[in-house]
């Protein structure tokens, strides 16, 4: 059964509700602290444990990675592709090291599996780009993260 409530004189025009709603907006605008920042100029500080952009650690210009394939093995998104090779100063090194970032779910298991402390996740979170979606070895080596 439909119950009809009796309405007051002003109620049908929702005037009070509109005014109280607008007051919230006005209050937030004038008196509360802002939640947005001016992004490219201002940056948020993330926790050191944030899992953002990958990089390969290098010592004296030589990458730590020995292409042991533990990170592609553990990777649940199967986004890491490595080809191993040999060169005179390093018995085994990655000829190709690619991370398909669009597939990556940033779980950080690669970092955890790495026996050589080579693949790391930095706390850089700005990764939107116009074209490249695959991080190649050169790019990953150039990154130093912010650690």
């Amino acid at each position: 059964m439909l119950i009809k409530k009796k309405q007051g004189l002003l109620q049908p025009y929702y005037l009070l509700e509109i005014i109280s709603g607008l007051w919230i907006t006005l209050r937030k605008m004038l008196f509360d602290k802002k939640v947005t920042i001016q992004f490219p100029e201002e940056r948020r500080v993330y926790s050191d444990r944030y899992r953002g952009m990958h990089y390969i650690k290098a010592v004296n210009g030589v990458e730590n990675c020995t292409a042991c394939m533990l990170c592609p093995t553990v990777c649940p998104a199967e986004c890491i592709h490595i080809e191993a090779g040999e060169r005179s100063d390093k018995e085994k090194y990655p000829i190709k090291f690619e991370i398909d970032v669009l597939r990556c779910c940033f779980c950080g298991m690669c970092e955890e599996a790495c026996p050589k402390d080579a693949i790391k996740l930095s706390s850089i979170y700005e990764m939107s780009q116009a074209d490249r979606t695959v991080f190649d070895k050169g790019f990953l080596l150039d990154q130093r993260g912010n650690k």
Binding site: T66, C68, L70, E91, K92, P115, K116
Partner: peptide
């Protein structure tokens, strides 16, 4: 300790 390099691992 070179299991990461070794093909046998």
């Amino acid at each position: 300790l070179d299991c990461p390099i070794c093909d046998k691992s």
